[in-house]
Structure formats: structure tokens, C-alpha cells
Deep mutational scan, measured.
Amino acid sequence: MAEQVALSRTQVCGILREELFQGDAFHQSDTHIFIIMGASGDLAKKKIYPTIWWLFRDGLLPENTFIVGYARSRLTVADIRKQSEPFFKATPEEKLKLEDFFARNSYVAGQYDDAASYQRLNSHMNALHLGSQANRLFYLALPPTVYEAVTKNIHESCMSQIGWNRIIVEKPFGRDLQSSDRLSNHISSLFREDQIYRIDHYLGKEMVQNLMVLRFANRIFGPIWNRDNIACVILTFKEPFGTEGRGGYFDEFGIIRDVMQNHLLQMLCLVAMEKPASTNSDDVRDEKVKVLKCISEVQANNVVLGQYVGNPDGEGEATKGYLDDPTVPRGSTTATFAAVVLYVENERWDGVPFILRCGKALNERKAEVRLQFHDVAGDIFHQQCKRNELVIRVQPNEAVYTKMMTKKPGMFFNPEESELDLTYGNRYKNVKLPDAYERLILDVFCGSQMHFVRSDELREAWRIFTPLLHQIELEKPKPIPYIYGSRGPTEADELMKRVGFQYEGTYKWVNP
């Protein structure tokens, strides 16, 4: 592979701008107003304001973009700056750019259920340069409990009458099928589907988006991507930290609602779906819905739930269990780990287990898709061969690698495990991989909904998990304890083995 010439960040961002501006969906010269509902909250200060700053800094926003914060707290732009700027990672050389960014910011205080507050917000936006005809993007960085009041008031008082209007809704989209349907029906009564952007930030990850290209742009994968060759698929999300004093919020939802029903299920769809007619948003989402419709409700015998306990040999936070978090209700049975087996009941995947695993306070930070292939028929190497695996590593250190057998150097035919490896950090030294939120917010500006969740996708996802969630809430089974920093409950490994996964433990990928 030829040595790549190092590029400056300015040059890299210039390439990104060229890609972005050559499309006809990006209205570079139009006025846009980006409204952050819930501007005083954690999500706004840690993710949304920093993301908008990065896009502005790199010249990736339309030229005439204004940012308006809205929340109940009586704040000023200076207050917003004070709480969000520490997350910007701005350099001293960017000081003038930073001043320009905050000059485009404003803030309006108001209630979430008060019509007069929204009329005041609308008047404020109209007073901005060309504000009355601007395109408006409303980001709901809010708890779902206020979605209905907020969307109703936005629709009645704050819509642009000339430009387009788009609304970005953060997960969780309800707690179960019934609450999700209620919320979807409410929002759909106010906005068209092409105006609604239900954001799952995992769909903005580079390697998640790469799944489609790997599958449908490489001839070698087509013939082997089926039940005849693939023994099982494992989708993993692991965090090495616990709730760390923020367990009160987590306890309301648990690990299945927080990660599995959305992030992991979306990745499953991209692995299992048929080739779409095109890369058009609805063509892709149509195929994802077909996959979900082929999955039956989760069966309790295919589920393992766990909850982390303190590690007596650990240090600091590792010595504390979930129930030691003062914000967690006493005696909570909320799971911090889950392993679930699903089956896609169609011709391509009949009988292939899709194993979804996620948890907190585990032994490493990792998100990946792992396809394990069947054993080689007619073994001539005296059971020395391990199964081939194709691994798409989402985070950290984005990579695609194939675990395969090669001859060990020497005189004899002794096979050993090795890999074919594409590590993004080595291959793409001159490429700026956008943060997931950067990519998705740019998608909203461009009107691309491919990486957002459609209402029928959402409904099918909740259909699969709601009976299990209701059973857990009714019966309150005690989750299996696992030690902070471990791989999780051993019962999860036993479940995976029972459905056909072979864990060798003899080879570990190392970032080159």
C-alpha cells in the first residue's frame, strides 16, 4: 500500500466541504435556525453545542446559521458558553472563530407547556436576519415526558411559513410498544414523516454505516452471507464503567431499553437485511423493517440478565456495585447486563442465532459485530482449526478484520490463527472521521433520513421486546451478580454456547 501524504486539518475539512456542497440537498446560502429545546441540560452542553461548534469551526454548516437555545432556566448566552465550552476542545488559535460562533447564538427562556412562551420564541426567531423565511431545525434534547406539549406548541407557534421545518427526537422513544405508539401517533398528527428525525446516534458511527458497503459492494461476501456458512452472529456493546452516581436515570430504563432495543437491534438489521433497491432512505429502511418483521418476540429462556457488584480487589469506582450508587433505588432489580438470542425467521437466516450482548462495568470498552462461520467440513488438521470470524469493530479503534487459519512457519503443516486486517487509523491517516452527532446533524440539514429511525421500524423493535420488558417488570427477577471489570455473568457464556457459538479464547485482536 502506497504511503499517504499527511494533510493538514484545513485540507481534510476542505475535502469534506467539497463532498457536502456538491450535493443538491445542502442549501449552503439559505438562512437556517437550529433550535435546541432543553438548552440547559446535560445532553445540550456535552453533545449538541459542542457538535454545532465543530461543524461551524470546520465550515460545514450553511453560511447563515443561527443557534437558539430554549429552556425553562433563566440563562444568558454567557451562561450557555460557560457550561458548554469546556466540552468544545477549542484551541487558543480558534479564539476569534469561537467569538464568531457565540455571536450567532441567542437564548430564550420559557415554559414547555405555555403557548405564550412559544409565541415569544417565534418572535425572537423572526427578528433574526431573514428569520421569518429561514429553515428551522428543532432538536428535542428533553425528557420524553414533555415531548407531547413541546411538539404541539412548536407546531402551533414556531413553524417557518416559507422555509422547511424538521424536528429531531432523542431516544428513548417511549418505554414499550404502547407508549411508543402513543408518542408516534401524537407526533405524526403534527408533522409529516419526512419532517421527523428520530435519532439513534449509533447509526451515525462510521463502521455501522460501513456495514452496507461491506455487504453490498464486495462480491466475495454475497455468496457466504447466509445460514449455510454463518453459524452465529454476535452483536456486542461493552462499557468498562458503571453508573457513577447517575444511576437514578438509568434505573428508569435499564440496559435493554438503553442499548439493546435500539443500538444493537439497528446493527442487527444492517447485518441481516436484503440488498435495498438503492441507497435512498426509504429503500434502506424498507429492508430493515422486513428483517424486524421476521423476528419473533424474545423468549425468556433465551435471556440472561445481570447486575454488577463491587470488586473487592478493585480501586475507586470498581469497588462499588450498582446498588451502592446513592441515586439507585434500594434493592433495585434493574439489569445492567443483558444477553438475548433472537432468530430472523426467513430463508437466508433460518436457524442462525443472533446474540445481542450489552452491559456496564465490564472488562473493556468495545462495540462490534462478529460473524462466526461454520467449521470446515472434512477436517484434515486433527481438530487444530478454529472457526473463521469476520469482525466489524465499531469502537474504539474502528477496524474490519477476518480471523482465519494460516500455516505456522516451519517444517510442518501446523495451522495457527491469524488475521486479515483493515484498521482505519492506519489505512486512512488523512481522513477526519466525523463524530456520530456531527454526521447525523449534517444529515438533518441535508434532509437525508437514511440513518434515522422510521415509525414502522420503531414499532417493530418495541413489538419484539415489550413482552419481555413487561414480564421483567411484573416478576422482578433478581439479576445474576457479576463482578465489576469482569466479562459479565458466566451464564451468558453458557447461553451463547448452547445456541452454537464457540468461544476459543486463544486469539485476541490487537490494534496495530
Rank of each mutant, 00 (worst) to 15 (best):
G131T: 11
A39I: 00
S160V: 10
V169A: 08
R9W: 15
A39P: 06
R215A: 02
P144G: 02
D42L: 03
P240K: 06
R9K: 15
A149V: 14
N165C: 14
V150M: 06
S179K: 02
R166V: 01
F237A: 07
T91C: 11
A127G: 12
V77A: 07
Q133H: 12
K152E: 13
F241D: 04
D113F: 13
G69T: 02
R227S: 12
A25R: 15
G242H: 02
M212P: 05
I255N: 00
R9L: 08
T65E: 00
A134S: 14
V213Y: 14
Y70I: 07
R104G: 05
P92R: 11
Y139I: 04
D251L: 04
A2T: 15
F216P: 04
A25Q: 15
R166C: 00
W164G: 08
I255A: 06
Y118Q: 05
D114Q: 10
D113T: 10
S157Q: 15
G254S: 07
I199D: 00
I230R: 01
E94W: 05
P172G: 04
A217S: 14
Q133N: 13
G174R: 02
I187W: 03
D228S: 11
R57W: 02
N135W: 04
S8V: 07
E170K: 01
I187L: 11
K205H: 01
I15G: 07
M125F: 14
I255Q: 05
D114G: 14
R81A: 09
Y202T: 02
M159L: 13
N153W: 09
F237I: 11
R192P: 13
A231F: 04
V77Q: 11
A90C: 08
D113P: 08
E239K: 02
D30Y: 15
R192V: 12
T236W: 00
N210K: 03
N165E: 10
Q195F: 04
S179R: 03
Q28Y: 13
A6T: 15
T31Y: 11
Q11E: 15
T91D: 11
S40L: 04
D30E: 15
F237T: 07
V208E: 04
R104P: 03
R227K: 13
S132Y: 13
L190G: 06
F250A: 05
Y249G: 03
N153M: 11
A71L: 03
I220D: 00
V146F: 05
V12T: 15
D113K: 10
C13R: 15
N126C: 13
Y49R: 04
S160I: 10
G59E: 07
G163E: 06
F102S: 01
R74D: 15
K205W: 00
Y197E: 03
F87Q: 08
Q133A: 09
R175Y: 12
A44I: 01
R246G: 04
V146L: 10
R215I: 02
A71V: 01
I196W: 00
M37N: 06
Q11W: 08
R81N: 06
A103P: 04
N64E: 10
D100W: 08
L20D: 10
H201N: 03
F101L: 01
T151W: 10
P92Y: 11
I36P: 01
N64S: 10
E170Q: 04
S8F: 05
F173T: 00
Q195V: 05
S157W: 10
A149K: 14
W225E: 00
W225S: 02
F34A: 06
R74M: 14
S8N: 14
K238Q: 00
L235W: 05
Y112M: 02
G163K: 15
L203M: 03
K47D: 01
H32V: 08
I162K: 12
G245W: 07
A44N: 00
G247R: 05
L7H: 15
E99L: 07
Q22F: 13
L43T: 02
L142F: 02
P240D: 13
N210R: 04
D58M: 14
R72A: 02
S123D: 15
Q28T: 12
E206K: 01
R175Q: 10
H27N: 15
T65W: 07
P143R: 03
G204K: 02
K171T: 03
A115T: 12
I168G: 07
L140Q: 06
H124N: 14
D228Q: 11
I167M: 14
F102K: 03
D181G: 09
K152C: 10
F216N: 01
I36C: 04
L211F: 13
G204E: 02
K171A: 00
I52L: 09
M125E: 00
V208R: 01
E94K: 03
R74E: 15
E193G: 00
L130Y: 15
Y107L: 08
D79M: 10
F191V: 06
R74C: 15
S73E: 05
P86Q: 12
Q161R: 14
H27S: 11
N105L: 10
G59M: 07
L235N: 01
L16C: 15
A90E: 05
F237D: 03
V169Q: 03
Q133W: 10
A44Q: 03
R219E: 04
A134F: 09
L75A: 11
I162V: 14
S188E: 11
T236V: 06
D176W: 03
E206S: 05
Q11Y: 14
M207V: 06
G163Y: 08
E156C: 10
D176C: 11
Q83V: 12
G163W: 04
A115M: 14
F66P: 06
P62N: 07
P50K: 08
P172L: 04
F138N: 02
K47F: 04
T51R: 05
G248V: 01
T151C: 13
D58T: 09
Q22N: 15
T10S: 15
D228K: 08
E94M: 07
P172Y: 04
H155A: 12
D42E: 00
G174P: 04
M125V: 13
V12Q: 15
V108H: 11
R192M: 11
G131E: 12
Y249C: 02
G245C: 10
A25E: 15
K47I: 03
F241V: 05
G163D: 07
P143N: 08
M207A: 03
K47L: 06
G69Y: 03
L43P: 02
T236C: 07
W225K: 00
F26A: 09
F241N: 07
Q119N: 15
S117R: 13
A109W: 15
Q22A: 13
P223V: 05
A116P: 13
R198T: 01
T236D: 08
Y249A: 04
G38N: 02
S132H: 15
G248W: 01
S132N: 13
A103N: 14
P172A: 02
H27I: 13
G254A: 05
V169M: 05
F88C: 14
G254F: 02
Q209K: 05
N64L: 06
R182Y: 12
S117Y: 11
A78K: 12
Q22C: 15
